[in-house]
Design a protein around this nucleic acid. Sequence first.
DNA 1: CTGTGTGCAAACTCTTTGCATAAGT
DNA 2: ACTTATGCAAAGAGTTTGCACACAG
Lengths: 140, 140
Amino acid sequence: MSEHRHIDGRKMLCDAGLRPTRQRVSLAELLFAPGDRHVTAEQLHEEALRCDMPVSLATVYNTLHQLTQAGLLREVAVEGCKTYFDTNTSNHFHFFSEIDGTLEDIPSGTINIGDLPTPPEGMEISRVDVLVRLVGRDTT
Amino acid sequence: MSEHRHIDGRKMLCDAGLRPTRQRVSLAELLFAPGDRHVTAEQLHEEALRCDMPVSLATVYNTLHQLTQAGLLREVAVEGCKTYFDTNTSNHFHFFSEIDGTLEDIPSGTINIGDLPTPPEGMEISRVDVLVRLVGRDTT
DNA sequence: CTGTGTGCAAACTCTTTGCATAAGT
DNA sequence: ACTTATGCAAAGAGTTTGCACACAG
């Protein structure tokens, strides 16, 4: 699950119409080199600093949003103020561990959503988010 | 859907082990008198003030959390910092309108979750949240 | 009376913004 | 060079906390 496939951050950014600055390339490579990831801005920021890629938190936020707009990331709402960004943009669902606050993909095909409900007049479904919350065994 | 059934806030609170103070009774009645509701703390606060039930925002937050702990409300994570509280605590799913930020119940039975995935070792599913995001027709 | 709840304002967390400096083409 | 991105620190939204006063039992 963590075959560090090699990623050309520069190309990825250019393709998305973003200027491949040092910071953006670094962040893109951190994000996309390992398999699918679910990070918060703060986590990514710390990770970048640990890897000697000095970036400011503001830039991390900017970059995450730019990548999201470019369709390379997906935002996942869990709760509280924390926003998670998921490198897997395909249709899939998540496990959320309430114990350590981590997010994980649910292998696709494992959950089937039957019939979707009919949306109200004049609206259409943009996305269906499914979050399966986990707790330790036996915790009420 | 909005038959203002009459609610005995006092009894409801006592049953939940909460002291029926003026503010709590007011809030409980605002919350539970109409049909199912989805409110944020701020919305409920404004509504209380409009109805001549002076309460501080801090008390609204306290009360909402106490009612949630007592199992009378359910928190719904949508995104951003806003926390919604749902008066319907049964297992059901939501529509979220990205246009006006409102939450609505999806009639139960309309969505079927097929097989739930097996949770990772030592964990169990505490809840499954399904959020169907809506946009206006034709908005990409 | 006694203890718990309330209100206020200040603290806190996560996120966004403004503006001078630095980097990309 | 000219433009766009970055970094910093300050502002912002939503939520929480601490402490004096008020209310419920």
